[in-house]
Amino acid sequence: MTTSGDSRGKGLDQDGCFVREGSLERVPAPFAPVVAELAARLATRFAPDRLVSSYLYGSIPRGTAVPGVSDLDALLVLRTDPTGSARTAGGPTEADRAAARAIEAELDAAFPQIDGAGILLVAEERLLSAEERYDMAWFVACLCTPLSGPDVTAALPRYRPTSLLARETNGDLHRRLPGLRERVAAAATQEERIRLTRGVTRNLVRTGFTLVMPRWGGWTSDLVESAEVFGHYYPAHADQMHAAARAARHPAAYPELLDDLLNGLAPWLADEYLAVHGAKTLPSQGP
């Protein structure tokens, strides 16, 4: 692991700005049919005047996906709905969400090489707003791979691994923690708990990494490397973060870990994040 200020090998270019981490050329061969079918189903389910652009993110466009283990992650940028009510105008409609859920289920059923599919929806107007400049817009610009349509983030300024970026991406754990505990307590099935374990542990590892990202001076989406980088700066909590990284990959193997993390590592991480970077400007609303 590189811990010096040198940005080489840390996901940055020679100017210290983020390099987009994925590409369609890196999609592993077993997942190429999944990506092709996703593009085909998007074209069928979403009208051209509704869907602006689609993106892939996660292990598949990074080229690190493992058949039977990895999931498919996609993000759709939608135009403002001119017929929507005040509640839905500018954001995804129920019809949009239903179409996305149907595609998720169809792909998961058709392709054993993926362990589930997830499609995020966001309105173009919101994505390019000032409030999302260092959160969702950064995510799409740096961590998402264009699949179809124009890259709507092409005109945005370049990003660097700053404290501002750290604050606006993950500086809301203290707000989300009570809700996470409620969702875990309410989980009624093992499948639901496994899904929560995967999602929460991924988020905790990434939050731990972004806590130290400005000091490390780079970016990685690899959960194991993220935990290693975090542990370099916070050795007292390294074992917990490594356990979270393992559970993010194999959540079913750690049935009791989620409760331990939400009552131990997570509250400490939330407090430390506030002390180092401050609170996110606006509460996270989700795509």
Rank of each mutant, 00 (worst) to 15 (best):
G199I: 00
H277M: 03
V122R: 13
Q240R: 13
V200A: 12
P92W: 06
A130Q: 07
K10S: 00
P82A: 14
A253Y: 10
P82D: 15
P161C: 02
E228H: 05
L257M: 06
L107I: 15
G286V: 03
P214D: 13
Y254L: 15
A187V: 11
S54T: 11
L282C: 03
L204R: 09
E182Q: 14
D222S: 03
A39W: 06
Y57M: 13
E228L: 09
A100G: 04
C17P: 02
R195P: 01
G22V: 09
D271C: 01
I114Q: 08
S148H: 07
A137S: 15
S59W: 10
V212M: 11
H250R: 14
R176P: 00
P48Y: 10
V69K: 06
E131S: 13
A110S: 15
P283T: 00
R97K: 08
E94K: 09
E225A: 01
E94W: 04
V140W: 08
A47G: 01
R183T: 14
T80N: 12
A95W: 01
V212S: 01
G217K: 00
A43S: 04
S284Y: 13
V140C: 09
E225Y: 01
W268G: 11
A155G: 12
S129W: 03
D172N: 14
H232M: 03
Y234D: 05
P28M: 03
Y254N: 13
A185E: 14
Q285F: 05
V52W: 03
T210K: 13
T281P: 07
W219V: 07
L196Q: 10
G11V: 02
L156C: 02
S148W: 01
G116W: 01
V205M: 09
R167Y: 12
A244F: 06
L72T: 07
D73M: 09
A247C: 14
S4C: 05
R8E: 00
K280H: 09
S70T: 06
E168Y: 13
E104Q: 14
A40C: 08
T281Y: 08
E182S: 07
A270Q: 05
V200I: 11
A236I: 05
V229N: 00
A98G: 05
K10G: 00
Y273V: 08
D73N: 10
L38I: 05
E191D: 15
E124M: 03
L128C: 12
A187C: 06
L223S: 01
A243E: 14
F46G: 03
I60K: 15
R198Y: 15
P283C: 00
R167D: 11
R175E: 12
G16L: 00
L56V: 02
D81N: 15
E131T: 15
L24H: 02
A98K: 05
E132G: 07
E256I: 05
C142H: 04
G9M: 02
V212W: 08
F46V: 04
R101T: 09
F46D: 05
P267D: 09
Y254R: 14
G264P: 03
D13M: 06
P287Y: 06
A105Y: 10
G90F: 15
V27W: 04
A74D: 05
R246T: 04
